[in-house]
């Protein structure tokens, strides 16, 4: 009974938490853009404009829902749902802290420690593309179709380097479970480097982060929704909460991706050089590990904003070229080097 209760609390808790971060991210995005661009940004609703996402949410919920006359209704309605559901469920295998001991019961801070966590993420992550292509197709708008096509090609292409980059990590740590990988990142190697994924897989990290940006449709890979070229791509015809689901799903994706980056490459909840867990009690370490993890995630969330307002956008053929001619050979090379190294050292 207890297990069920804990599981439900974890599911609901992490769901609300991710949603909350995504909501705050919309504010961070706008205020961050304003900060970078020398302007005030939204600052009227509440202190520092913090209630702006609330106002946006109310607006999106109360707006009239318009389904274009020529749209294919079923696909049009399914699009946003198919996009946001995978986004919401992908975080399930990403940890958000070490563990907490309550009443003698050990609770790991992760919704579910699946031993094929990677495969789950890749599988669920690639589901999102259906939402995009169905939305683009169902809208019956040429710009939407172009956006959907761009998105499909891009997501399919970048899934390959993404998976290959992750394979390097699997080689190094010998497991598919994100929690096991996180645990393995404690301590140092070569005497001075933290035992983090980024130091063991530097090339893999670069490949992963580039591919992840492309998977998330973020600048400089935001071609599917390039507003100056194809208006808004697949969500040109969407309004009200349907549009909200698309936008929201994107931010949830960012949270998930940042969580994965931190869990795999940035030592998860570990501090470099210090094993805080040895000094703190089980409950306080649970909270502290959660905070450390969250701080690292926030940095990568900020990096998404930072990059978005700094770089221009790629062109379609350049994105494809980079994916197939740049990232995939490099990823294969990375796997080769990793395998060779492991073969020689072990």
């Amino acid at each position: 009974m207890d297990d069920w209760l804990i599981a439900i609390i974890k599911v609901v808790g992490i769901w609300v938490w991710v949603l909350l971060i995504a909501v705050v991210m919309t504010w961070v995005e706008r205020r961050g853009a304003a900060l970078i661009q020398d302007r005030p940004g939204p600052n009227r609703a509440g202190p520092f404009g913090l209630f702006q996402p609330l106002a946006d949410g109310i607006k999106l919920f109360t707006k009239e829902e318009i389904i274009p006359t020529n749209a294919q209704k079923l696909l049009y309605i399914m699009g946003p749902l198919l996009f946001s559901l995978p986004a919401f469920s992908a975080y399930a295998v990403v940890p958000f802290g070490d563990k907490i001991i309550l009443g003698g019961k050990e609770i790991i801070l992760q919704v579910s420690d699946v031993n094929v966590g990677f495969l789950y993420i890749l599988a669920i992550g690639s589901m999102g593309v259906y939402g995009v292509i169905l939305g683009g197709w169902g809208s019956n708008n040429k710009y939407s179709i172009l956006g959907g096509l761009r998105s499909t090609a891009q997501m399919v292409s970048y899934e390959v380097p993404l998976g290959l980059a992750l394979l390097g990590i699997v080689f190094v740590y010998g497991t598919f479970s994100l929690r096991d990988i996180s645990l393995a990142q404690q301590g140092t190697f070569l005497g001075f480097l933290p035992n983090w994924g980024i130091f063991k897989q530097p090339l893999g990290f670069i490949l992963f982060i580039v591919a992840a940006y492309a998977e998330a449709n973020r600048v400089p890979f935001d071609l599917p929704e390039a507003e100056s070229e194809i208006v808004s791509g697949y969500h040109t015809e969407y309004g009200s909460m349907r549009l909200g689901l698309y936008l929201f799903g994107e931010y949830v994706n960012l949270v998930t991706i940042s969580g994965i980056i931190v869990a795999l490459y940035f030592g998860s909840w570990h501090m470099p050089y210090i094993d805080l867990g040895a000094y703190l009690g089980p409950i306080s370490w649970g909270i502290v590990s959660f905070c450390i993890f969250f701080l690292k995630v926030s940095f990568f969330l900020w990096m998404f904003v930072w990059v978005r307002w700094t770089l221009p956008r790629f062109r379609y053929d350049q994105v494809m070229g980079l994916g197939w001619r740049g990232l995939i050979p490099l990823a294969l090379f990375n796997i080769f080097i990793t395998a060779l190294f492991i073969q020689l050292t072990v």
């Binding site: 970078i36 661009q37 100056s228 070229e229 307002w309 700094t310 770089l311």
Partner: peptide, 10 residues
């Protein structure tokens, strides 16, 4: 139009 928004504001 090329996706670099920030210089516009500067």
């Amino acid at each position: 139009d090329l996706g670099a928004f920030t210089p516009f504001f500067y």
